[in-house]
Design a binder for these strands. Structure first.
Lengths: 105, 105
DNA sequence: CGCTGATGCTTGCAAAATACAAGTGGCGGG
DNA sequence: CCCGCCACTTGTATTTTGCAAGCATCAGCG
C-alpha cells in the first residue's frame, strides 16, 4: 500500500486530523476537545479509541474521573503534514480560484 | 475557520487526496484513475466534480469522447502536504508502535 | 449517609456519505 | 448498421456520521 493510503487509513476519518491538531498544543481533556472542536461526543470517543489503538495518542490518568489525551511520538510526527495542509487551506480556500471551473464560458 | 478545517472541507472527503496524488504524476483520464485507485466510479465522478468546482483540477478535452484531468496551480500546491502525509504513513503505520495502547500492562 | 454537580463516556435512532451493480449515451471503426 | 470503448448516471444496499438522551463514577457538602 502506498504511504498516503496507509496514512489515510489512520487519520483519514472525519475529525481525526482536527483532534491531532488540537493535541499539538499539549495534552487536553475530553471535554476541552469536545468544546474546542464542536465534534459530536460519540464520534470523539470513537476517534480517540482508534487513535489510541493506532499509537497516535495515549491516555494520561489525572485525578479520579478525569484524564488527559496526549500525542505519542508518532502523533507528534504528524505536525509537518498538518501544518502543510493548514497552510494550503489558508492560502487556497475561499479565494477567487484563478483557474476555476465554470462550464458556461 | 482554521486553515486545517478549510483544507479538509475541500480535500477531506474519501478518495480526494488519493485522486490528487495520482494527478501529481501528470494529467490522467477517467478510466486510468479508476483502475489505478480502485475507486467506485460514482465516487470518482462526484469527487472530480467537487475538485473541479473547488479549483483544484480542470478538465482537458482530448479527442471525441475522451478527456484528461489535470491539476491547477492550486492542486499542485497540495504536493507538499501530500508528500508529508505519505512519508508519515510509510514511517509510522504498521510498525510495532513503541508507545502503543495496551490496557493490559 | 444521601444529594448534587462535574466529567467521561454509551446507546438508540435518523440522516448523510459511500459502495456495489447495472445501465445510458456518444462516437469511431469495421 | 452494429460493435466496442469511454465517460459517466442511476438505483439500491451498507457503512459512517450526527443528534439527543441516558449511564457510571467520584468529590464535595450538609
Amino acid at each position: 500500500m502506498s504511504g498516503l493510503a496507509a496514512a489515510l487509513e489512520v487519520v483519514g476519518a472525519r475529525w481525526a486530523l482536527r483532534i491531532v491538531e488540537q493535541l499539538l498544543d499539549g495534552p487536553q481533556r475530553y471535554g476541552d476537545l469536545q468544546r474546542d472542536l464542536g465534534v459530536p461526543t460519540n464520534m470523539l470517543a470513537t476517534r480517540l479509541r482508534e487513535l489510541e489503538t493506532a499509537g497516535v495518542l495515549r491516555r494520561l490518568p489525572l485525578k479520579h474521573n478525569t484524564r488527559a489525551y496526549a500525542l505519542t511520538e508518532r502523533g507528534l510526527a504528524l505536525r509537518g503534514a498538518i501544518d502543510a495542509l493548514a497552510r494550503w487551506g489558508s492560502a487556497h480556500v475561499g479565494e477567487p480560484a484563478a483557474g476555476a471551473a465554470d462550464p458556461q464560458r
